[in-house]
């Protein structure tokens, strides 16, 4: 296949999405088991062991890869589920596991040295020294960079480490250093780091207030929007707060990252793989975003310039950004 091109990595929240992604042109998919061992632990989502085995077999028959995210942090005394997840990913024939916790990395490196290890964005490794640590200690082959670096910084990291670099190309923008954000558990008592769900739906409520809707997480009001106004899923980092006498999105606007128009720059920066966020989203979303990126990546390879597809209808709040990739985001 197109050997030197960027690898297009698609989310797969379930077996149907895995098939949709591969049929739409994904080179690889990432997915997780239906428990708290991964950062998208939502009801009805993800794979059981049999589905994982079938998913890997299907992907391999189409020449695609399957990466299994086991990227949460086991609470003390409860590492068994995470160890089982790694054993099961190895048994299913997964092409790699995506890990974040030092204890889990240590287990995987010792127990399954031949199972490829990627460093999850949840490990928040944003500089060459950190990345080298995970490479030296656990034999990590690829790092998923946090969504907080500019293209120049990505290039610097790629050059300094010589590692495979995976970056986000589309989807939700995470303004916080991931894997160590306790805002959601501060409001709900459930930890994204160990339970795998930021702002779990069980704690999200909406209250109508005249022409407005209040969105709440636990007992905390996260936003007040006019009915029909674009708003993101209510997470604490995309909420409206009042500071310095002004109400506003003090962390991040309800907006989606879309790097479709800067793919040549990312390739030049030394990026290996381009990741699309959104295992919690529909197979229709997966198919549409993957095929838009497939077309754009193929165009990058052939050097032709063409206008890219409009994905704004799929974006949070209906708006898009280059995020941290371009200067000025900070």
């Amino acid at each position: 296949m197109t050997h030197h091109s960027l690898e297009l990595l698609s989310p797969a929240g379930n077996p149907a999405a895995l098939r949709a992604a591969i049929e739409a042109g994904a080179d690889a998919v990432y997915c997780g088991f239906a428990d708290r061992t991964n950062a998208r632990n939502y009801p009805g989502l993800n794979f059981d062991v049999d589905e994982m085995v079938e998913g890997v077999a299907f992907a391999h028959s189409k020449g695609a890869k399957v990466l299994v995210a086991i990227n949460t942090f086991p609470p003390a005394g409860e590492m068994k589920s995470w160890k089982d997840a790694i054993d099961n990913a190895a048994m299913a024939g997964a092409d790699a596991v995506i890990l974040a916790d030092i204890g889990v990395l240590d287990y995987a490196a010792n127990k399954h040295p031949n199972l490829r290890r990627h460093l999850s964005v949840q490990a928040s490794a944003a500089n060459p020294l950190s990345i080298n640590y995970y490479r030296d200690q656990f034999g990590v082959k690829r790092v998923v960079l946090p969504r907080i670096l500019s293209v120049d910084e990505v290039a610097h990291v790629a050059k300094e480490t010589g590692m495979e670099i995976e970056v986000f190309g589309y989807g939700s923008v995470g303004p916080m250093s991931e894997g160590r954000c306790f805002l959601s558990s501060y409001m709900t008592g459930l930890s994204p780091t160990s339970e795998g769900a930021c702002a779990p739906a069980s704690h999200v409520t909406y209250k109508e207030e005249g022409d407005f809707v209040l969105s709440c997480l636990g007992d905390v009001v996260l936003n007040r929007v006019a009915k029909g106004e674009g708003a993101a899923y209510p997470t604490p980092c995309k909420a409206r707060y009042v500071a310095c006498g002004k109400a506003g999105y003090i962390f991040e606007e309800p907006i989606a990252l879309n790097a479709l128009d800067i793919l040549p720059e990312l390739k030049k920066a030394g990026v290996t793989a381009l990741k699309i966020e959104g295992r919690q989203r529909s197979k229709a979303y997966v198919a549409e975003v993957v095929s838009a990126f497939r077309k754009a990546l193929d165009a990058v390879e052939t050097g032709e310039t063409r206008s890219t597809d409009d994905l704004s209808d799929l974006s949070e709040g209906g708006r898009q950004t280059f995020g941290a990739y371009k200067k000025g985001w900070r």
């Binding site: 929240g13 909406y206 969105s215 674009g230 309800p254 529909s282």
Partner: peptide, 25 residues
């Protein structure tokens, strides 16, 4: 999809949001 549930105009979810997400997923 699960995210769009919450930013799709013309769709109003009330009560236990987790129930709707579970069904959707």
């Amino acid at each position: 999809d699960g995210d769009a549930l919450f930013f799709t105009r013309g769709l109003v979810i009330a009560g236990d949001t987790a129930a709707v997400v579970a069904l959707r997923n």
